[in-house]
Simulated assay, not measured.
Amino acid sequence: MDSEAEAVREAIAGELRLMDPGVRRSPSLVRQLLDPDFVEVGASGRRWTYEEMLAELPGVAGSVEDGPVYEPSAMIGVMLAPGLVHLTYETTIGGSRARRSSLWCRRGEGAAWRMYYHQATPAAA
């Protein structure tokens, strides 16, 4: 069974991988990190489903080779229940700042941690 600290570390590692442009351009790598029931409400207010994210992520900000990348800060996490971790942090990319919140779940012992929900809210620079 994961300790809370280990679960939070694994969720943070997954979150940081999802900000890596090389990972973002690879639907097969993203598929390993997103739960099939994934939903996101982006900083634009758009609601993204799992399939939409897999299809469009390679071409959006933070994914483009030699383009701006996400710079995370103040990332913290807490285990809300066994198999459920909540992360909060801030990002900057291309001069835009956002506050972010993610839920990571692990469906069964030995299963991978995957992002279940993500919310981004624009923040003043």
Rank of each mutant, 00 (worst) to 15 (best):
D37M: 14
A55Q: 14
A13D: 09
G59R: 10
R97A: 01
G95Q: 06
R31F: 01
S28H: 08
D20M: 00
R24W: 04
P36L: 05
P27S: 09
I12Y: 11
I93G: 01
E65P: 06
G83W: 08
I12T: 14
G42F: 01
G62C: 04
R97S: 01
S26G: 06
P72S: 08
E15V: 07
A43K: 06
L16D: 00
L87T: 09
W48N: 02
E90M: 14
E56G: 14
G62F: 05
M19R: 15
R24S: 06
P58R: 13
E10N: 14
D66H: 13
I12C: 11
S96Y: 09
R17C: 08
D66E: 11
R46W: 02
I93H: 05
E51F: 04
G14I: 02
V23G: 05
H86C: 06
R97I: 01
L87Y: 08
T92G: 03
T92Y: 05
T91E: 03
G14L: 02
E15A: 12
S28D: 11
H86S: 08
L29Q: 14
G14R: 05
A81D: 09
A43G: 13
S96L: 14
V30W: 08
E51A: 15
E52C: 14
L57Q: 11
E52W: 13
P21S: 05
A98I: 06
G77K: 01
P21W: 08
S63E: 02
G14D: 00
I93P: 10
G94H: 04
Q32G: 11
L34F: 08
E65V: 12
E90G: 12
V69F: 07
G22S: 07
I12K: 15
V85T: 02
I93E: 03
D20Y: 00
R24D: 03
R31V: 03
E52I: 14
D37P: 13
E56N: 14
R46T: 12
L34I: 02
D66Y: 07
G45L: 05
R17A: 13
S73W: 02
R31A: 10
Y50N: 11
P21Y: 06
S28C: 04
S63N: 04
V60E: 05
S63W: 03
V39R: 15
H86I: 00
V23N: 07
G62D: 06
V69S: 12
A98M: 11
L80A: 15
E90R: 15
A98R: 13
M75I: 15
E71F: 09
E10F: 13
R24Q: 09
L29P: 09
S73T: 11
R47Y: 04
D66I: 07
S26C: 04
G42I: 01
M19N: 13
E40N: 09
Y89Q: 08
L87H: 10
V85S: 00
T49C: 12
G62E: 07
E52P: 13
Y89D: 02
H86M: 06
G83M: 12
E56M: 14
S28L: 04
G77L: 02
P58W: 06
E15H: 15
L84A: 15
L29S: 12
E56Q: 15
I76K: 12
V39A: 11
E56R: 15
